[in-house]
Write a protein that binds this DNA or RNA. Structure first.
Lengths: 223, 223
DNA sequence: GGAACCAGTATTGTATACAAAATGCCCACG
DNA sequence: CGTGGGCATTTTGTATACAATACTGGTTCC
């Protein structure tokens, strides 16, 4: 991950999330080359990845724009993530070794430490949460599934949602993880799937409550 | 689709499917540039797409190889396609217009014409089948879902499976499509999902029967 | 006044040269 | 013999120049 194209990807992504540009704004590869400090060749590769993740879109004539997600897009993203990650949990339950289950326990312990403080550390929570879900996906041992989920989980909306978590939301996440671990330890795929389903569906409702019942495009960037 | 990188993609893909190279063979970008007649720049873009589809893989040190799919990989591919396309069918049932349902009927009519001949035209069947499923995915109106399914449906194993279809298999496909259309016309998402599920699950068993219960890697390329 | 056309400009697409990194080979050395 | 070090070769990664394409604004012609 130290090649110029990877750095370019990271920097462009940060630029998009920083709020310096808004949905529907046009970008040019030259601009991005200047911003990142690399030439257009690695920038183009980074842009292709960001197009894949639908953070950037191209017009009919190949011009580049910041993506503008509708509420429908985002709801579908949550639905897809739930569908895929429930499947991952089911597969993981059949495959996780005892050591891997222990690893999950350790990660969830770290997650609890991050939130059980005078001031919960959301960044550390997010990182532990990411590691937890990543471990499950890895254990599912399906390259395509991992690929697909990688794109969804990285999506900025998912990350921003966490800002709206209350302390109780965070604690409930940790409890969900505990139950997932129990399901894995019991080697019960159906149980794992069900817990993952409610875990992720709750995240969706937290998001929906934060954004409200608005309908127009672009409103989600305002959160 | 007339840019050099698109042409390169098509040609490299054809080269991979032609059997001229075998799983685990090493390729170089220079070789592919010569084969396609384009320079390495568009070839690299095409290669990136093929990596995305897991037709090509890179070693730790970024060297390029023809992918080698295990039976597990392929089973998971079928499972993912089923999961995603059932979801698409469900969404499509909520969104298809009357005109779109009529289009599906026309496509399935063409599909029947392709098979109800002295010698069934498998290529035409495949093309009509592709259009049928594509129309449903489009109607689901979820860009990410479309993206994911695009990669799965294009996979060569899915295409090769069709060679093993008997006439009765082909006719059953057409009947499944009829029932899907009925479900769409009735605006019944659950019905649509169920029919799509059995439709695709049958394809999996047709494949499994053709390949047999072998276990080692690479055996699927022998079909 | 409006539509079609024609520069000129902006932007993306491709080729090529060179840089960086990895691999393999050969030889020295134990 | 085997093994490790280092040069030559192969292969991938990046920069840059140029080509092709799409847009913009203004002008002419009806």
């Amino acid at each position: 991950m130290s090649r110029a194209s990877d750095q370019a990807y990271i920097r462009i992504r940060a630029h998009l999330l920083s709020g310096a540009v808004r949905p529907k704004d046009q970008l040019t590869e030259d601009q991005l080359a200047q911003i990142t400090g690399f030439s257009r060749t690695p920038v183009r590769e980074a842009v292709r990845r960001l197009e894949d993740e639908l953070l950037l879109v191209r017009s009919e004539s190949k011009r580049l724009f910041v993506a503008d997600w509708s509420r429908d897009d985002i709801e579908e993203m949550f639905a897809l993530r739930q569908m895929l990650e429930c499947h991952a949990a089911e597969r993981a339950a059949r495959r996780l070794s005892g050591a891997q289950v222990a690893d999950l326990e350790a990660v969830n312990h770290a997650l609890r430490e991050a939130i059980e403080q005078p001031e919960p550390d959301v960044a550390r929570f997010l990182e532990a949460n990411r590691r937890f879900h990543e471990a499950i996906i890895d254990a599912a041992h399906s390259p395509r599934l991992g690929q697909m989920l990688g794109r969804l989980v990285e999506a900025p909306v998912v990350l921003r949602t966490a800002r709206n978590y209350s302390l109780e939301d965070l604690r409930q996440s940790a409890r969900d993880h505990d139950e997932l671990i129990a399901a894995f330890a019991a080697r019960d795929p159906e149980w794992a799937r069900a817990v993952m389903g409610s875990h992720l569906r709750r995240a969706f409702h937290t998001f929906a409550k934060a954004v409200g019942p608005t309908v127009g495009d672009s409103e989600v960037k305002a959160m």
